[in-house]
Simulated scan of single mutants.
Amino acid sequence: MTSIVQLDEIPTLNLLYKLGKLSAAHSTASDSPLPEPNVAYNDKISLIRTDITKLGVDAIVNAANESLLGGGGVDGAIHRAAGPGLVLTYYEQITGAYNLPCKKVIHAVGPVYSSTKRKGKHTSLLQGCYRRSLELAAENGCRSIAFSALSTGVYGYPSDEAAETAIAEVKKVMDAGGADEIDRIVFCSFMQKDEDAYEETIPEFFPPMMDDVKKSETAKLPIETGEADERTTALPSAPTEEPKQEGTSAAKTRKTDDETGKAEEHSDAKM
């Protein structure tokens, strides 16, 4: 059984850059200048690939389906780990965590990519999920929040597009002071494709300090120079299994598209 991953075990961007786990970007996707490095931001943002149901943070964000009753993938995993009590509060945007090690669960109904893209609403709907989740966390006194990779499962949002939208929106909220009451924001991936997308995109929005770049380019890591602590020697392991994608048959996918109108209404009204 996977042990609980406490907040101080989740690596920040500053640590990942120092360890050479993240590399500096040479340019942004739009060829616009990179933002100035911000050590405070890089201490607030974390990136990890693990089972989100094992994170000992204040709040986790569930990639919920329109019914909010649990389903496949991460949504189903969260409901199974939380226990039956979570279903009883499914109409709420933020609920207790029941058997989960976190304190709260925020339920974000992300957009179905194919149908919302045709309407030009996919980006704004996904942005709204991240923005509203941060608002809910702050309103409920949550000092740490972990996001799953919203809409990248059965809802079909390409991982690279989803990661860019998520990271850009979170930075926008931070720049406006909307996350000042939150100490840590974690992007938690389960699938390798999502982790790859975040590792590729995060340096474009949260670049490293130059000292971290120099350190990552050297042959020796902190563990070899005697500067290591427990966090640098024992980062949480990545999942060894992919989540079960229950309900991802062709019939389920068609149903998902049919329910898009309801999902959009729900996202507009609640997220």
Rank of each mutant, 00 (worst) to 15 (best):
S3V: 08
I202Y: 04
V61E: 12
E241H: 11
L13F: 05
A138F: 00
K244R: 10
D51W: 00
N140I: 01
H266D: 12
S3L: 09
Y41F: 14
L22H: 03
L47E: 10
A137P: 06
M209H: 08
I145V: 14
K270P: 00
V39I: 14
L47D: 13
R131T: 10
Y130W: 08
K121P: 01
P37D: 03
H107V: 08
T28Q: 12
R49P: 12
R132T: 13
A234V: 00
D183V: 01
E227G: 09
K44V: 07
P243N: 03
G120L: 02
S267D: 02
D31V: 02
G261K: 11
K171A: 01
L68C: 15
A24D: 05
P37C: 05
I167Q: 04
K21E: 15
E66N: 15
A163S: 14
A63G: 14
K119F: 07
V170R: 00
G226F: 08
P158N: 05
R254G: 08
P207V: 04
L15F: 02
D180Q: 07
K119E: 15
K220Q: 14
C102T: 13
L16M: 13
F187E: 09
F205C: 07
L134F: 02
L22Q: 01
T28H: 04
S32K: 15
K252H: 15
G85L: 08
S267T: 10
L136T: 03
A219S: 14
A168L: 02
T256Q: 08
P101H: 08
A97D: 07
E230W: 07
A269T: 13
D175G: 05
K270R: 15
A251G: 10
E241F: 07
M191I: 03
T225I: 04
K54D: 05
Y41K: 13
P35G: 04
M210K: 13
S148F: 01
L16D: 02
E259M: 14
E227T: 07
G76D: 00
D58P: 10
E181P: 01
I223H: 12
Q245K: 13
L100T: 08
V74Y: 00
H122R: 06
A263F: 00
I78K: 09
M271D: 12
D180M: 06
D212V: 00
H79A: 12
G110V: 07
A269V: 07
S114Y: 09
N38E: 06
I52A: 11
D212L: 14
G128N: 13
S30P: 04
Y130L: 12
E230T: 06
G56V: 02
A166S: 12
G85C: 05
E139N: 10
S237I: 06
G85V: 05
A64Y: 05
Y41C: 11
G178Q: 01
T232Y: 03
R231C: 10
S159N: 11
V170Q: 00
I52S: 09
A137S: 05
I223V: 14
P158H: 02
V173H: 03
P158Y: 04
G110F: 01
D257V: 08
L13K: 09
L126F: 08
L19T: 04
A64L: 09
V154M: 12
P208C: 06
S148I: 00
K119W: 06
K262A: 15
L235K: 05
A234L: 04
A63W: 06
L15C: 11
K121F: 04
N42R: 09
R80V: 03
